[in-house]
């Protein structure tokens, strides 16, 4: 417990930017804790870690940890991170986005980062809504859910973030929740370790802009929902018949990583005497 709660303090810009902006009961801080423990566990130097985030409650995360941090524009975090990674290939570049950020306005960058298989760790905080702007429907809002723009229940089908990432070419895909926080630590650790584009969908609670409209007005009720509606694939088996949402590592494969391939080309041109 000490290690779970104590480690983040060493990484937070506590003297600078607290109290934070998140509401009581919000899950985003829990995901930040997992990210920090993963970085700490891997022994990475803070100087070598960049956190690039989009716009939204989730995007606000980059303000707090003591890394090289960049709060970009809505939906574009992966594209900013692509440039940074190519300029500093040795850095660990973590990209934090909300579900609307990553999949609606930023959907194009998401699938192309996956297709390129560039060495970024994308953490999509899925709270099923556009939280910052007051709880509008997002590409992951479940059918039937009530939001401020689907007041009579959403009838649009939702994206499955993980299947989308897999189809688009990611090397590593995992899903965790804010409730199963120690498991989330491990998933993020493996995602960072993985060469290539890795995606962790972190199911998170937003009691204020989502839960309130869907009979879960507090963080506790929403965490319970995460506990009851998800199942670990390690425990149940990947193809077990269940209508619950699966948690764990959904995909782990090796594909050529973009940055490495690019600099191989540079080296090859040099060796062939084609450099100028």
């Amino acid at each position: 417990m000490e290690k779970t709660t104590g480690v983040p303090y060493e990484y937070l810009r506590s003297h600078k930017k607290f109290p934070h902006v998140w509401c009581p009961g919000c899950g985003i801080g829990i995901v930040l804790g997992s990210i920090i423990r993963a970085v700490d566990g891997l022994g990475l130097s803070k100087d070598e870690v960049a956190m690039v985030s989009g716009i939204g409650c989730s995007g606000r995360m980059s303000v707090y940890p003591d890394f090289n941090t960049l709060h970009t524009t809505h939906g574009r975090a992966l594209a900013f991170a692509t440039g940074l990674k190519l300029a500093k290939p040795h850095m660990t570049v973590l990209v934090v986005m909300g579900d609307g950020d990553a999949l609606a306005i930023g959907g194009n960058h998401f699938i192309h980062a996956a297709r390129r298989n560039i060495g970024l760790t994308a953490i999509v905080i899925n709270n099923s809504t556009y939280a910052l702007t007051g709880g509008q429907a997002s590409p992951t809002t479940p059918v039937g859910a009530r939001t401020t723009t689907s007041w009579f229940g959403s009838f649009e089908p939702a994206f499955d973030i993980c299947r989308l990432a897999e189809a688009a070419g990611a090397s590593f895909v995992a899903r965790g929740t804010a409730y199963h926080v120690l498991e989330l630590d491990k998933l993020i650790t493996r995602a960072i370790q993985k060469k290539g584009f890795s995606v962790v969908e972190a199911i998170s609670q937003c009691p204020v802009s989502y839960g309130r409209f869907n009979q879960m007005p507090t963080g506790v009720e929403m965490l319970k929902w995460q506990k009851d509606h998800t199942v670990s694939i390690a425990a149940a088996g990947k193809d077990a018949a269940t209508d619950k949402i699966s948690r764990g590592v959904l995909l782990d494969r090796d594909r050529p990583e973009y940055t490495e391939e690019y600099f191989k080309l540079v080296e090859r041109l040099k060796a062939d005497g084609k450099s100028k």
Binding site: L70, T72, R76, A79, F80, T82, G83, L84, M91, H112
Partner: peptide, 14 residues
């Protein structure tokens, strides 16, 4: 949109 985003990211990388 991504082009200029990547350009800015690379500039931040030096």
């Amino acid at each position: 949109i991504g082009s200029l985003a990547a350009v800015i990211g690379a500039s931040i990388g030096g």
